[in-house]
Amino acid sequence: MQANDPAIKWVEEPQLGLGGKMYLPMFVQGLTTTVKHLANSLSGKAVTVSYPDEEPEIANPLIYRGVHRLNKDAQGRVKCVACFLCATACPAHCIDIVGTESPWPDREKYPQSFVIDELRCIYCGMCEEACPVDAVELTSLYNLTGRSREEMIFDKEKLLSVYDATKDAEPMKSASLGGTV
């Protein structure tokens, strides 16, 4: 591209005022900002959280993307209908579902096994987005640890138990967001 190309829009730089030329006002301005932050931190308002000593405060647990859970409906049954949409949407291919015929009349299929490999998962939340019945959700549990790889592969029972553990702190989003019950 040539310098005289008509597509180039030339912007005139603003001229420096007296303060900029004298340098001192700018210097004082910069110094004030720094000292303000320094004083803030020294009075204990640093944004860092010393994690193992203190727990971080999660601003909105409903939109945090932590460990998965499998929701239960009002009768305590697993909500999942084994439609495979989450497994299809998953970019990390970490969801493995074996569907079978449902014992209940209100749906055709249900998951015989529902396994999420938490080590492969990238916590993008696509499964949550894809699910038509709001069965799989991400909780705000961020401190997920384990001693072996096997331990980190969550099966249906474990995912349901996550629901039991978190259902009081984080009620299902679907009701408030107009989803299925």
Binding site: T34, H37, S41, A46, V47, T48, S50
Partner: peptide, 13 residues
């Protein structure tokens, strides 16, 4: 520590 404080962090403690 000064760098951390000025950047609203805690620094090596």
């Amino acid at each position: 520590r000064m760098a951390a404080w000025i950047q609203d962090r805690v620094g090596p403690n």
